[in-house]
Structure formats: C-alpha cells, structure tokens
Design a protein around this nucleic acid. Structure first.
Lengths: 140, 140
DNA sequence: TTGCGTGCAAAGGTTTTGCATGGCA
DNA sequence: TGCCATGCAAAACCTTTGCACGCAA
C-alpha cells in the first residue's frame, strides 16, 4: 500500500516535470502515457503507474477518484510548500467533474476535530471532498 | 445511468431481504454473490449488479466508492427520508489501509459550512477522509 | 401476449504483476 | 556490486454488455 522511491530515475524526473507543466490540471494515467507517446518519450505503462503511486504516497501529486469505473485522475500538488499557512483543499464536482481549490482556515478546524474526537490525523492533501458545485446546484 | 425496476421479481426480493438482514454492514457485489452461492440460492452475477444499480437509483441502498481499485460497497439505507441520523462518514488510513466508519453529528457541520461559505454541496457518501488512524499514529 | 428481467459467457477497460534486463548509488 | 527500477506482455480485477430464454403483469 505504501511505497517510496529510493532511486532518482530519469523516468521519475520526466513524469514529475510533466506534472509541473500542468498545475491545476487533472490527468489520467493514460493521458500521461499518450502525452509521452506523442512526444516520443519512451516510458512504459507500468512505470507510469508505479511512479504515480509513489508520487501519491509522497504527497507530490493528488489522486482523484470520480467514479468506480472511470480512470483515476492525478494533479500536481502545488501547495506542498512550507511557507504559507494556506493549505489547499480539493473539491470535486460529481456532476461536471470540475475541480475546485479552496483555501479556508475554518476548514482546518476539521482536522482538529478529527484528532480530538476520533484520534484520526486527517491529511488535507490526500482528502478530496466530493459533491456538487455551485453551477451544477443552480443549473439543475 | 438511471434505471428503475418495473417488475417485482424473485431475485430482487431475495436481494432486498439479504440487505435487510445486514443493516449497517458494507458488502461488495461479490460478497453478495458468494453469500448466495454458499446458500445455494441461484442468482446470476449480472442480475446482482443490475439489481444493485436499481436499488441504488431507488435510494433503497447506498453505494460507497472507497478507493479506485477496491470494489464498490453497498449498504441498506435504513434511515427514513425524514430522519437525520445514520449518515456514515469514512476515514481511510493511508498507512495500514484500515477503513473507519464514523457517525458524527458534528461532522455534519462541515456540510453547512461548505454550502454557506463555498456554495458547494458536499456529499458525505462519496467523500473519504484520508489520514492516519490511531494505531498508526502511536507508532503501532 | 408484451416486453422486462434473467443468466451465461464474453467483452470492456484500468490497473497490477512476473520476470528478465538495465540503471542508480 | 547490490538492489531497485524499468518494460513488455500477460494476468487480474471489477463491471458491463449481447443475446436467447423465461417470467411478471
């Protein structure tokens, strides 16, 4: 379930560079494979999957699950910084698929609540809030 | 995506009866199939899947998608349409993979907050909180 | 009788795995 | 050098679909 990269390989670097060029965008594993194929960068499919898993475990990218039978989406976790207190929360609309980034201090209270009441250390980087966005709420 | 049952078939009744005997329990589609097989009740796999989908659409059972590569879970939706209780929150430990089920009124405040401040209708059924469980926090 | 529901097998697509090879430290 | 990572193909996995038959109304 948990894995980490121990070596710094060329493939890992290329994959990471790719994510850095598309911040705020969510891509699937096959998007990544297609991109590399069309740019004639030879990376095996399994290598992509294995590195994606590593990067998720390391908190470098975030994984999104839209539906059981849709492929998972990944996004560069830009907020993995150290300076600003601003933690970025992710909301994903179940209907239109829109990805919303939130900075909200009040939401940080949730983490305290989880620790205090449930002895659970919630990870805001990996947690994705699913629901309906404003547009989809009003549009229907 | 949306379907409803028009006929009341024997298979549908058996499936529904099964869910009534395990309220509050999460079962997968193959759990259901295995159960019927071991009890020598002949129901085809596709029939199980199709009826599960119907029952979800009808609001009789609830579908949970915990992780991209885990099978979907289903649970009998015991709560009446007017009762506020029995919404189940899910916490998944990133380290040991344990799935924790929570019933917490205070967490329902999150939903109000999302609506009020962010115009986002959070879906507690679909949202999974990732983090570290008590055991893993204490070094295990 | 009408047409929906069932069941089997096969397909569908994403993700994982086995194993030999290649590369990082 | 000792492992770890890679890459290919094949497998695994859950779920959906096609089609002929059976059953509910």
């Amino acid at each position: 379930m948990n894995s980490r990269s121990k070596y710094k390989t060329k493939q890992r670097e290329i994959l990471l560079d790719y994510f850095k060029t598309v911040p705020g965008v969510h891509v699937t594993a096959s998007d990544v494979c297609d991109y590399f194929k069309s740019h004639e960068v030879p990376i095996g499919k399994s290598t992509v999957y294995r590195n994606l898993e590593n990067l998720v475990d390391e908190g470098v990218i975030t994984k999104y699950i839209i539906d059981a039978n849709s492929p998972a989406c990944f996004e560069y976790a830009t907020q993995g910084s150290h300076e600003e207190d601003a933690v970025c929360y992710h909301c994903k609309c179940e209907k239109c698929g829109k990805l919303i980034h939130l900075h909200c201090e009040e939401l940080e209270e949730i983490q305290s609540h989880f620790i205090r009441e449930h002895h659970f250390k919630m990870d805001p980087v990996r947690t994705v809030f699913y629901g309906l966005c404003d547009s989809c709420l009003q549009g229907k």
